[in-house]
């Protein structure tokens, strides 16, 4: 579902006199359908940067990112914006650590947005969103409220709901359980396992050893790049 070839990323900081910040290079990562690969390594090793590159959020410095989209392979690293957007709309979901939304839109509408864009009737989409939020222990009385005032853990669960409602074939999860209590952690773990059983390919970052043991089929280790000379 995902295959990277010689993927490399270096940041150039123009405001710091063009300082070069190499993050990783020569990344060859393959993820199959129904498989969960957990990116491992210390902070600063480039796990989130790799994940953002897979999503096309960061530009690849070199190499290819092949993503299976509608039966064909699309290179995210070399595609036009509208192709990348189509891949995100139908194939690729990224659940980031932070919730970023239009202010003053209700939690239910935020989660229902993806199915509505996909053409599902608004009422049906809101029903789907409502049950998913309930499963993640966001009580119904909170569904009509924008998530801005929610706690960190609640916002993270809204973010998870928004990612999982899509049921896309590839899931990228950046610390999906970081600020969750044990009960909600196990709900999310259950959802990840169900997604895998459906054949979803999962790439995850998670520091929690129990969660990792429950979801990972394999680890992909990353180590911090050496400073450029």
């Amino acid at each position: 579902m995902i295959r990277t070839e010689g993927l490399a990323k270096t940041f150039t900081l123009h405001l710091r006199g063009g300082m070069q910040l190499p993050v990783f290079s020569g990344i060859d990562l393959t993820v199959h359908s129904g498989e969960c690969v957990v990116l491992s390594g210390p902070s600063g090793a480039g796990k989130s940067t790799l994940m953002r590159s897979l999503y096309g959020n960061y530009r690849a410095g070199a190499g290819h990112i092949w993503i299976r989209h509608h039966g064909g392979m699309v290179d995210i690293a070399a595609s036009e914006p509208r192709i990348v957007l189509a891949v995100r709309r139908e194939t690729l979901v990224y659940v980031s650590q932070f919730l970023r939304v239009v202010p003053r839109v209700s939690t239910l509408d935020i989660v229902a947005d993806e199915p509505i864009t996909r053409g599902i009737a608004p009422d049906e989409a809101r029903d789907m969103a409502g049950s998913l939020l309930l499963r993640l222990n966001i009580p119904r009385r909170m569904h009509g409220i924008p998530p801005a005032t929610f706690s960190g853990g609640e916002q993270q669960r809204v973010n998870v709901a928004r990612g999982f409602i899509a049921a896309h074939p590839i899931l990228l999860l950046d610390e999906p359980t970081a600020s969750l209590d044990a009960e909600n952690r196990s709900v999310v773990v259950g959802m990840i396992q169900e997604a895998k059983a459906r054949g979803t390919a999962v790439v995850a970052i998670c520091h929690d050893a129990d969660v990792r043991a429950a979801i990972a089929d394999r680890l992909y280790p990353l180590s911090p790049a050496r400073e450029a000379a």
Binding site: L15, R52, P81
Partner: peptide, 21 residues
């Protein structure tokens, strides 16, 4: 020029980096 989140989260040009920061 590019995808909105890419240009804002990983700006390449010096001026865009200044603008975003």
């Amino acid at each position: 020029t590019g995808l909105t989140d890419q240009v804002l989260d990983d700006p390449q040009h010096a001026y865009t980096q200044l603008l975003v920061s």
